[in-house]
Amino acid sequence: MNQRIRFTLNGQTAEVDTDPARSLLWVLRTDLGLTGTKFGCGEGHCGACTVLVNGQATESCSLPVGRAAGAEVTTIEGLAQGAQLHPVQLAFMEHDALQCGFCTPGMILRATALLRRDPDPTPEAIVAGLEGHLCRCGTHVRVIAAVRTAARALQGGAQ
């Protein structure tokens, strides 16, 4: 049964008329045309589809879109402020913390949520925070370095 579902998507109101049981992932990618959120496993095992829902990193493949009603959803497309990239994005670029880039949007959003909660994470906390994210290309050591750089930039107020 279709429902009208509204939420805030990257700062703007989004509205879809769809089955609320559908996953947020496919609604974002298909109905709303935001393809930066990636499909990797469809079952919550890889983290490629991670978005922010009310600031929480969430696997969008496992979240029914009905549960996003009224929420604030941020995808990778909405992280930068205009042309100004977010410090986590800049740090990923600086460290080349990506190869094929398919896991990258999910990693960046997870790291962003992590740094909001814990602005000065230890390497162990970064590892624990990202443990659910798979990267087949093996960028892990770079990602950890990038998150530490981003933490410093955010603490220094560098925006």
């Binding site: 990618r29 045309g33 935001l34 393809t35 930066g36 959120t37 990636k38 499909f39 995808t75 990778i76 497309e77 992280l79 930068a80 990239l85 994005q89 990923f92 670029m93 600086e94 080349d96 990506l98 880039g101 398919f102 990258t104 949007p105 960046i108």
Partner: peptide, 21 residues
Amino acid sequence: APRIDARLKVTGAARYAGDIR
């Protein structure tokens, strides 16, 4: 040299086969 595709890949703008419409 830093990767020339880095900006596309950190912003979600990089297109993969599944992103073509």
